[in-house]
Amino acid sequence: MTADRISATFAACAQNGRAAFVAYLMAADPDIETSYLNLVALSEAGADIIELGAPFTDPMADGVAIQKAALRALAAGGSLTVTLELARRFRSVNSKTPLIVMGYANPIHRMGFAAFARAAAEAGVDGVITVDLPPEEDAPLRTELAAHGLAVIRLATPTTTEKRMETVANGSSGFVYYVSVAGVTGAGVGAESDISAGVERARRISKLPVAVGFGVRTPEQAAVFARISDGVVVGSALVEEVRAAVEQGDPGSSVKRISVVAQSLSNAIASARAVRSVH
């Protein structure tokens, strides 16, 4: 399983002529129990792959939405250990949807790379994205994850040159996460033509599926990216639904909210290429 579950998911989506819907939520946001229900709701609403954010006090690559989600999660008792517990619980009811832990290096470093890889594999996690471990620094973690068959998903960005893409590709597994715009999560979106060229470059050099993320908020944007990539990542827009539920004094209502938003994103992504063929 593990990295294989990711490949199988992309292959199945490709066979159906559509991009994968990759959905992000912060573990333990707004609280541990609701967070679990949100994950289940995501998968039922059509998320093909789930990225589970591990909360960190200093998320310097994230915009305001995910920063606040991390602080809510930490206040609710969230941690890397709790993130893995949530993964395990989700895996016990869902053996199909790949789970990717996305976070920052320090909590993983503190747990120990080997201990983390073992715990993540046992919890049924399929891959890991560590925002602040670029290819030059990820070898110690990569070795441990590889020993358990877990994928190391690396980021490629608009600043990743052709030559550097080879560095990124060499050691990537699962898929390549193409960051649509130089910026933090939830920022604006780059020009479609630039993104398309970046995705092509990543795909050609890595030979892996390429998912596009950062700044995808609406079903319309998701559809645009679904036409030019193998997967569309949506994070901040989902996390904002949790915030809205919390602000209305009803954190439990985030389950319904997420379900509705995820469903519309999923539909847009599933029908994106068919819509284009009509034109």
Binding site: A105, V131, D132, L133, P134, E136, R154, L155, T159, R164
Partner: peptide, 20 residues
């Protein structure tokens, strides 16, 4: 050459910043 002072230092930044 990797920006290390023994076991310390390095370049732990997001990929966007790495080329810079």
């Amino acid at each position: 050459a990797n920006g290390r002072f023994g076991a310390f230092g390095g370049r732990y930044v997001a990929e966007t910043l790495m080329p810079l």
